[in-house]
Each structure stands twice: as C-alpha cells, then as structure tokens.
C-alpha cells in the first residue's frame, strides 16, 4: 500500500500538476493575445489589459468604479464591508460628496449605485450606462467637445445582454471608451 500510495502521488502529480496545465498552455499559444490576458499595446508600450480596470482621476476621462485596492492588479480584492458597517456608510457618503463636488450640476439621486460602491475584484472594467451619463458633461467640457457627440459615442459603446437575452444590459467598458476618446480627441497636454 505504501508503494502504491507513493507512486500514485508522483504519477498524478506529473499528470495533473504539469502535463495538464502545459497542454492548455500549448494550445493557448494558438491564441497568444487571449492567453496573455488580452494586453493592450500602444506604440509598442504596454498600456493596459483589456479586462483590467485602471485608475482614472482626471476630468477628461470617464472614471471606473471605486476600487478598494486602488486598482492594484497585483493585490486584488473588495472592501468586504458588511451592509450595516458604519465605516462603509461613511465611505459611501464621502464618495457621494466628492462626486457632487466634481459635478456641481448634479444631485445625489442622479448618482447610480455602482459609482459609489467598490467592486469585488477592485478591477471591474465596466460601469453602468447611467454612471457614464452622469459623467458626460464633465468629460465633454474637459475635452472641448459637444455633449451630443459624446453621447453618440456612449451609445456605440453600450453593451447589451449576451445574445440580447441573458445577463446585465447597458454596460460600458471604461478603458475601451477612454482609449477611443484619446484617439479621437487627444489631450494637448497629457
């Protein structure tokens, strides 16, 4: 039984700990872009990963959802705040106050809930369409473009449910949207 136990450990270790992942890796080489987590290179420089949110804090960019780990992709996670926690309540109030300060034309009831709650991963690449519309005026002003032009762009970036049927609809991929903004309406002084 001892010999069986030892050999079984070694053989399964080789099979499932080495050969199985290496075969997936080998097949993954057929799709190198996906297998590397969809990196985005601009002029040969790594500027992001398609599905990983970035920190946006300046007016000309649409902002991502709050991140409890400050968008650190090497130490990810959520706040783990329970719904009754006073510290959580204070944090949300602080975010509302900050958003209203940055968007003086808006009121609290205009703020969608996803813009004041932190995501589970801290790297949520999406915001809701309402969260983008909330920021529209600010971004348009900072970029010097009309709100209508920007709204058309938002509409093109709005993702529907899967096959139009399954899952959340009207979501916006923040990074892709901001990349297109930079391409079409580059900032003179980045």
């Amino acid at each position: 039984m001892l010999r069986t136990t030892l050999t079984l450990i070694v053989t399964t270790l080789v099979l499932f700990g080495i050969l199985y992942p290496l075969s997936i890796w080998a097949i993954g080489q057929l799709l190198p872009h996906q297998a590397n987590g969809k990196p985005l290179y601009i002029n040969g420089e790594l500027r992001g990963f398609e599905n990983i949110a970035q920190a946006f804090t300046s007016a000309p960019y649409f902002w991502s959802r709050p991140s409890d780990v400050d968008y650190n992709g090497a130490d990810t996670g959520g706040s783990n705040f329970g719904p009754s926690n006073q510290a959580f309540h204070e944090q949300v109030k602080g975010r509302i106050a900050f958003l209203l300060e940055q968007h003086p034309e808006k009121k609290a009831s205009d703020i969608p809930v996803d813009l004041v709650t932190s995501s589970g991963s801290g790297l949520d690449p999406h915001i809701s369409l309402q969260a983008a519309i909330f920021q529209l005026e600010r971004v348009a002003k900072a970029r010097g473009i009309s709100e209508n032009t920007l709204m058309e762009m938002l509409e093109r970036h709005t993702q529907g449910a899967l096959l139009g049927l399954f899952g959340p609809k009207e979501t916006i991929h923040v990074l892709k949207l901001n990349i297109e903004l930079d391409q079409k309406y580059p900032l003179t002084n980045p």
Binding site: P21, G37, R47, A55
Partner: peptide, 29 residues
C-alpha cells in the same frame, strides 16, 4: 483561454495607464 483568462508564466507586469501612472498586474497559468 479563448475569452482572455491568462495561461502564461510571466512575472508581475507593469502597465503605464492612460493617465500615465504605473499599475502592476499579476497574471500566470
């Protein structure tokens, strides 16, 4: 993999974000 879950053996990578900050991103198998 086809949808972008990484399978590589890279160390933690540094990204220069659109706003010009440095962001660290871990991937792996």
């Amino acid at each position: 993999v086809a949808n972008g879950t990484p399978i590589n053996f890279e160390a933690i990578q540094e990204v220069k974000t659109l706003e010009g900050e440095i962001q660290q991103v871990a991937a792996g198998p």
